[in-house]
Structures are given as C-alpha cells and as structure tokens.
Simulated assay, not measured.
Amino acid sequence: MSPFNLAAINFVWLPILPMVIIAVAAMVVLLVGVRVDDSESEGLGLVTLASLGVAFVFTLGIVGQNGIAFAGAISIDSFSAFFELVILIAAMFTVMMSLDYAAENHIAGAEYYALLLFSTLGMMLMATAGDLIVIFLGLETMSISVYVLAGMMRRNPKSNEAAIKYFLLGAFSTGFLLYGIALVYGATGSIKLGPIHDALASGALGSNPLLLLGIGMMVIGFGFKVAAVPFHMWTPDVYEGAPTPVTAFMAVGVKLAAFSAFVRVFLVDFESVGAHWQTVLWVVAALTMTLGNLIAVAQTNIKRMLAYSAIAHAGYLLLGMAAGVQSGPAILYYLLGYAFTNLGA
C-alpha cells in the first residue's frame, strides 16, 4: 500500500481552492440574500468582496508552481496565476463600484452579487483550463451569468435589449466555438492541450482540412468574446444598456478571460500551425484597430465610447498574437495596464 501523500493532495487541490471559495461564496450569498431587502444589499456586497479577497490570498499560493492537475484538465503555471489574480482584482473593483449603485437602483442584491461571483468562477476556470472542454465550461459559466447581469435593470428597456442581444449573439458564437473544438478533437484525437500540442508539433496534421476548419471556427468563437471586428456588433449596445459596474466588468473581466484561453490555445498549442491562422489574425487586428478607433471618435455616449475603445484594444492585443509566441509577455503586460485603466475610466 502506498503511503498517504499529503504533498500530492495539496498540489492537486490547491489550484482549485480559490475557485471552490468563489463557488461556495456565490451559493451562500444567494441563499442568505433572499431575506435581504434590495435597498439594503451593501452587506451582501461586503461578503462578496471579502470572499474575493480570500480567494486572492489563496491564489497567491500557486504563484511559481508548475504542473497539471485532474488528469490534465487544470494547468498550474504562472500564466494561469497571473490571469486569476487580475480577474479577481477586476471583480473586487466591480463589487466596490456596485455597493452604492446596486442599492440606489434597487437591483436584487442576492442575484446580482451571486452572478458576479459565478461569472468570476467561469473566468478563473478559463484561465486555468488544460483542455478544450474545460475552456468551454468556463466560457459558458461566465457567459450565462453575464447575460443575466446585463439585464439586471429589468424596468430599463435598454438593459433588456442589452441582455437579449448579448444572449442571442453569444449563443450563436458559442456554437462556432464548440463545433471548432469538435473538429480539432476529430483531427488530433484529444481535447487535452498537451497532446494536441504534441500532435501538431509532429507536422503530420499541418494541412489537415478538418483541423484548419476547426481552428477557423475557434477564431470566430473567441473573436466574438474579445469583441474583434467583424464579431463586435453586440458590444456598443450591450455596454450602453448594462448597469455601469457590469459594463466595467464586461470590458475588463470578460476580455481577460477570453484572452487567457485565446492566447494559451493559439500561441502555445497551435503555434506549430501558426502560418494558417496568423495571417487571419493580422487582417482581423487591422480591421479591429481601425474601425474601433474611427467610430469611437463620433460617439456622444461615454459607455459606447468605452465599447469602441475596448474593440480597438482587442485589435492591439490580436496584433501581438499575430506576431507569434515571442510577444506573449508583452500581451500580458498590456492586459494588466488595460485592466486598471479601463476600470478607472
């Protein structure tokens, strides 16, 4: 009989402990909040903020560790730790902005803060994903929560419009991403990112039409989530109609989570077939930068201007991805600066 290996257990469970804390906190806030009046939801906000702070402290514990957990479903490395920490910071700033806003606008505190936590959980799952299905699960957990958050001001027609547009276009783009994942699995025989990287690095699949079609569909799916042209149509209306703290959360948190998965999959695992997708990203990046900046000039609504600013920044980040894996650190540095400046705006 093998001895009880506490170190191995710690290595497996420590990476998901911050996510467990967030999930438990979301359920507690939802259950406790049923008895809290909407105009007195600051207490729920403070509980949410404290939970995010505890998760942040535990996330610091995985900085510097490297490996995989749960049979490769979770990646433990500095890349995932970086994105988890920045996502948690963005969520904490969003909660702080929401303390007065939610109470003054009579937004249901229990549902609002629980959905913020569940969407944060999905973002963290995307950042730590080690296979394509976990990326998809994280994306859906994040997206469904944000669809509802966008429409939390139920008596505001623009908020209702934002939720419907985001949901319909989001569901459509998710279909592209999932079909792309299925085609990549069909071509490589695996959903795990490590084996996919090894299969593509061998060079045998470089011109496989099944693989190329799958990569193309995944570009469309991720392109919607990062608001790249021509998949940006939802962004201005959703940013304008959503509650202001939710707009900030979408502009920063959703983009961070989407780029965490986009960068890991394409710059690392699809690097060996970069010749097939880098040209596409060059074109998309040029269109995104140009259109985002030009249309932003004509805006008179600050939230729509923020939306087109987010679109333009997505173009700058895609330009880094198109340049290849050597631009990885620059992309992370840019995302860090983007997070704080957009939350400030």
Rank of each mutant, 00 (worst) to 15 (best):
I295T: 12
G320W: 04
N301H: 12
K303M: 11
L317Y: 11
L306A: 12
M289T: 04
A310Q: 04
L291G: 01
G320S: 13
L319Q: 09
N293H: 07
L287V: 05
A298F: 08
L306N: 00
L319Y: 10
G320C: 14
N301Q: 13
L294Q: 12
N293I: 08
L287K: 01
L306G: 00
L287Y: 04
T300C: 01
T288W: 11
L317M: 15
L291Q: 00
A286T: 14
L318Q: 07
I311W: 05
A322Y: 09
M289P: 03
L287F: 14
A298P: 00
A307N: 06
A322F: 07
T288P: 05
T288S: 08
A296T: 00
A286D: 06
G320M: 15
A307L: 12
L306M: 15
M289E: 06
L306H: 00
A296H: 00
H313V: 05
L291K: 02
I311P: 02
T290A: 10
T300M: 06
I295D: 08
M289A: 05
N293K: 03
T288Y: 11
G320P: 07
V297K: 02
G292A: 10
M321H: 07
V284S: 01
Y316G: 01
I311G: 02
G315Q: 10
A298D: 08
Y316V: 09
H313K: 08
M321Y: 14
T300E: 10
R304M: 07
T290H: 01
I311C: 02
V284F: 03
A310L: 09
L317K: 02
S309L: 08
L294A: 14
V297T: 07
N293Q: 09
A296E: 07
A286F: 10
S309M: 07
L318W: 13
H313F: 14
A286G: 09
M305E: 13
L319T: 14
L291F: 12
M321I: 13
M321Q: 10
A298Q: 07
V297A: 04
V297W: 07
A310T: 15
L306D: 05
Y316H: 07
L317C: 07
I302K: 04
M305P: 00
S309Y: 09
A314K: 02
A286I: 15
M289V: 15
R304S: 04
Y308P: 00
A310F: 11
M305C: 00
L317E: 10
L287I: 04
A322K: 02
L287E: 10
I311M: 11
A307K: 06
M305L: 14
N301F: 01
N301C: 00
T288F: 13
L318K: 05
A310Y: 06
L294V: 15
H313Y: 14
Y316S: 03
T290L: 15
G320K: 03
A322I: 05
A314H: 07
H313T: 06
S309I: 05
A298E: 11
V284C: 00
T288V: 12
A286N: 03
L306C: 03
A298S: 13
A307H: 10
V297C: 02
M305K: 04
R304Y: 10
A307F: 11
S309A: 12
L319A: 14
A286H: 02
V284M: 13
T288K: 03
T288L: 11
M289S: 02
T290V: 14
L317A: 15
G320V: 10
G320N: 09
K303I: 11
L319D: 02
M289K: 03
G315E: 11
L319S: 13
R304K: 15
V284L: 13
